[in-house]
Computed example of a mutant assay.
Amino acid sequence: MNPIPLFPLSRALYPEGILHLRVFEIRYLDMVKQCIAEQSEFGVVPLLAGNEVRTPEGKEVLADFGTMAKIERWDVPMPGLMQLRCVGTTRFRLLSSEQRKYGLWVGEIECLPDDPPTPIPESLQPSANTLGRLIADMQQERIPVAEMPFAPPFRLDECGWVANRWAELLPLLPPQQRHLLADGDPQSRLGQIQDILKRRKLLVG
Rank of each mutant, 00 (worst) to 15 (best):
N2R: 13
I4T: 01
P5V: 05
L9E: 10
L9A: 12
R11W: 06
R11P: 02
A12P: 06
L13G: 06
Y14N: 07
E16C: 10
L21Y: 02
L21H: 02
F24R: 11
D30L: 08
V32R: 01
K33P: 01
C35H: 01
E38A: 13
Q39N: 14
E41C: 13
P46V: 03
P46R: 00
L47C: 07
A49H: 14
G50Y: 04
T55D: 08
P56C: 07
G58P: 08
E60M: 12
G66K: 01
G66M: 08
T67N: 05
M68W: 03
K70V: 10
I71T: 01
R73L: 13
M82A: 04
Q83M: 13
Q83L: 14
T90H: 14
R93P: 02
Q99A: 14
R100Q: 15
R100E: 15
R100T: 11
Y102P: 01
Y102S: 15
G107S: 05
I109H: 03
E110W: 00
C111F: 02
P116Y: 00
I120N: 01
P121C: 09
L124C: 11
P126T: 08
N129C: 12
I135W: 05
E141F: 00
E141A: 13
R142F: 07
R142A: 15
P144Q: 04
A146M: 13
F150W: 11
P153F: 11
L156G: 10
E158S: 09
C159P: 10
C159M: 08
W161H: 05
N164S: 04
L169Q: 11
L172H: 00
P174K: 03
L181Q: 00
D183V: 00
D185E: 09
R189D: 05
G191Y: 01
Q192N: 10
I193M: 09
R199M: 13
K201A: 14
G205L: 13
